[in-house]
Design a protein around this nucleic acid. Sequence first.
DNA 1: CATGAATGAGGATTCATTCAT
DNA 2: AATGAATGAATCCTCATTCAT
Lengths: 202, 202, 202, 202
Amino acid sequence: MRQEKRKELTRAKILQAAKQVFAHNGYAGTSIADIVKKSKLARGTFYLHFQSVEQVLNALLQEVFIDIQRYLTDMQVETLDHKNFKLQLAVLAKSLLSVFQNHRDTVSLLLTTMNAEPKIRTQTLWFQELMQASIRVMLDRGVASGRLKKFDTELMSFLVSGGLREMLTQWLLYGRYANDIEHKVDEMISVYMNGVEKTDKK
Amino acid sequence: MRQEKRKELTRAKILQAAKQVFAHNGYAGTSIADIVKKSKLARGTFYLHFQSVEQVLNALLQEVFIDIQRYLTDMQVETLDHKNFKLQLAVLAKSLLSVFQNHRDTVSLLLTTMNAEPKIRTQTLWFQELMQASIRVMLDRGVASGRLKKFDTELMSFLVSGGLREMLTQWLLYGRYANDIEHKVDEMISVYMNGVEKTDKK
Amino acid sequence: MRQEKRKELTRAKILQAAKQVFAHNGYAGTSIADIVKKSKLARGTFYLHFQSVEQVLNALLQEVFIDIQRYLTDMQVETLDHKNFKLQLAVLAKSLLSVFQNHRDTVSLLLTTMNAEPKIRTQTLWFQELMQASIRVMLDRGVASGRLKKFDTELMSFLVSGGLREMLTQWLLYGRYANDIEHKVDEMISVYMNGVEKTDKK
Amino acid sequence: MRQEKRKELTRAKILQAAKQVFAHNGYAGTSIADIVKKSKLARGTFYLHFQSVEQVLNALLQEVFIDIQRYLTDMQVETLDHKNFKLQLAVLAKSLLSVFQNHRDTVSLLLTTMNAEPKIRTQTLWFQELMQASIRVMLDRGVASGRLKKFDTELMSFLVSGGLREMLTQWLLYGRYANDIEHKVDEMISVYMNGVEKTDKK
DNA sequence: CATGAATGAGGATTCATTCAT
DNA sequence: AATGAATGAATCCTCATTCAT
């Protein structure tokens, strides 16, 4: 029993070391040797837990994936077709941000890794697909409830996820909006909404 | 004189080979050996033209860069503060698309390489910055001319460039919108504009 | 007492696993890890019983060695200088075959390992020497009793042991003579005898 | 052109080094590292010429193979159905011996490697098959010409090739018969012939 | 200019062996 | 006795780079 705990600990050490090395050298720039060196474990130990750098990346991304998916699943449950659609969106977006913030390093890694080498692409695809699907579900709901115009929600999900990605990149990778990220989220929603919301006035 | 021509040809062969290998293995997955093998030239020859894979990538991206920049510079010259702002945007966007299409492979490479490893990031940064700057200039002009609401044009340039990038990715990397890409561009502009355009009703 | 039995069982498991792995990968191609994996025991357990793969091979060969030696020793005791020398040879040869058949896998391993790497050679040398010595004793007896011509019995023991080895190889390794091996043994004896036997004609 | 010669020389160095290491450690006991060290070439150079130790073994055996095959082919051409069959056999056998002697080290390697690990077995099979086929052809010819009894020539080819192999082993591996090998060959033929030759007397 | 053989550092992977539980 | 996690030496293999032709 104790031994299992030790194994778990070693695995965690590897992941921790990898996270640091990835942040410093980027995924493609890190070798198993680098991770091993940082972890201060023996070379052979690495192979007891992982077979390749790719698998380590996978394990790391898995962690965020679980949190993000849980978040999105919970969110979906809530009904969105109320009065203050826009306000609710803002609340959702901000709590999603906090999930990202909890995983700063891994999300940075994710941003850096997305759409990269064919071999990696599949490992990050889920993120794009998850985000786009979630966005689209919300949009479809908005359309169905009459709050939004009828439009190509797939295309829109691409535009929003792309915009979101860029914002995350600016925020996490380039350090912009360090303090007023929440405020910027409001602006972002406003921009999208006013292009999408039925104006219906008069 | 004859010799220079030959040199130029050899260089072109290397670039051509590299383009193919990058498309197949991704940038991080290609070694000098790979490029040399594909080019059917001698190993030593490579070093007469480039010092590293990175330099090859650079040269390849340079080609698109020049075309894109020329395009954007020319565009800027034109005045945008006319009546049919939206229509003009569409025209601009579509001709930009054709630039991308002419460089399909290299743009794919660019999309795949952007925001990646720290060492490469700098090489692709110009693309983001160029696009964002251009978008922002247009927006600023729109605001100045009273066609657009007053808003944070920097933020908006992020959102638009992110959306655009995602569309390009879907188009070039994942083969979506193969035929009706132009139509989608119209929708895209419409989405953004109606969120940005002063509604000015009544 | 209980513990000793358990230990014996574990040892047997290792030997059994090793036999299978050897048959599949060959001796040189098997690592301790391979045997451990096949045996489903823990890595450390292996070292409680053996120190190296070589020792396992040794233990396996030991088993056949004991049986063969017992057989040959018993045989020697019998007197051969009777009338029907040839018939008796056939009887002896066939019962030797049955010893081999009982240890099919290990004898195959032996055939595969004989004369191989210097480090192993010593472990299999006994087999050749035992066979050659036994053959030679019989031949010497035949000569002494006047049944056989006078000739170099050492050389002859090499020829016969070599021929025998090749037959075993064809039989056990390559599956030839699956059914009529006994018949072939008769032919073999006949070939050798008629070249060795005094013809004594007229 | 000069460069090709150099390459050939390097390849020869590797083969030479390998031959020595094989002789010392046996095939299974030698690593690429061993060969490289012995050859005093760079590690990478090895891979320019071979992909594995197995390929080196192959190349080495190939050399003998060619010589042996040429020898046997030439021999076949001669007609054997003359008067002094036995004498001719002796001549043939002795010139075959000289081929073996020219390739002492490689033939030793061959003897050591035959019937070994499954992966190698195929590489040495040709030797056994070539010898057995050649022997059988001679025997068949002898039978056809009436010089030899009718018997199972396949079985006999196994017995003879096995006996031959053992003699070679004693000679090349264990240093027996260093001086009078030729004399022993005569005895060997005599032994076999008198068991095979029609006595036909009276 | 172009060639391609040779180089050796560095990274990937396996393996026998130890040791705390 | 048995276990299996950890170890690090040894090996395999690739790669960027040099240099004589």
